[in-house]
Nucleic acid binder design. Structure first.
Lengths: 130, 130
DNA sequence: CGGCATCCCTTTTGATACTG
DNA sequence: CAGTATCAAAAGGGATGCCG
């Protein structure tokens, strides 16, 4: 029987299986394309949706929305809705998100320090392949 | 409409800058699903392909191969071919890979420490959604 | 303004089969 | 043992439209 395409846009379940390696599961979430960027943008202050979007580079509304929801779900950011005019939604890091920020920054620092060396390696590697 | 990009943030090492494509490029590479796992498996010793595969959990041959080649290309691991019988290829961390290991371990430690808390958050979040 | 839904294309990944 | 090749499925991601 034909299965209708039932909502592949997951925000939710199916990730917390029992036999699964928790650590890797967590790492995957963190390792995605935008989470780290967004977390860094929330480093020192609360931000609104579009503000966050402008700061985070070329991220689509859809992806930012999905990223934020995942971060919220994992207890890394809080989402606060203000019933003002115009409406505003603020995002901020939780203590857990803040603790992740430290680790992420260490990684970022390493990346910066090694970026040029890595690019050199890539160039050399590609040259050898030829 | 005014953009109003307040951009004095950056509380330290600049990872999250928009012009920083190199850093993000490196982060993406490192943040991928398997690189961290493989690097950890090479932490203390040289290992062969299938040995690595067994140790790294449910990784397909294809993915391990691709991951290793990326790591080699970026100068993080060395690949040594032994013309023996049966043939054997050893992978080991380079100094650069070793320097990354420290950072990666911090990330892995964070993931371990926060895994259960994150799962709790997810459960709570899913419950609220209902 | 914030943001979910839909359509649709691109990239990634896993199974399987095959080579040196 | 250590891969590469191929194919199909899945996930990622952009564009657009609608709604509160």
């Amino acid at each position: 029987m034909t299965e209708l395409i039932t909502e592949p846009l997951d925000t939710g379940p199916a990730l917390c299986e029992e036999g699964r390696d928790l650590t890797r599961d967590v790492l995957e979430r963190i390792g995605d394309k935008w989470s780290v960027v967004v977390i860094c943008k929330l480093a020192d202050t609360t931000r609104g949706f579009n503000e966050l979007r402008r700061l985070s580079g070329p991220i689509s509304q859809r992806m930012l929305s999905a990223t934020l929801r995942r971060l919220e779900r994992d207890g890394l950011v809080t989402r606060t809705v203000h019933n003002t005019k115009p409406p505003r939604v603020d995002y901020a890091l939780t203590p857990r998100g803040l603790s992740l920020l430290g680790v992420v920054r260490a990684l970022a620092r390493w990346a910066e320090e090694n970026a040029s060396g890595i690019l050199d390696s890539r160039t050399a590697f590609n040259a050898e392949q030829a």
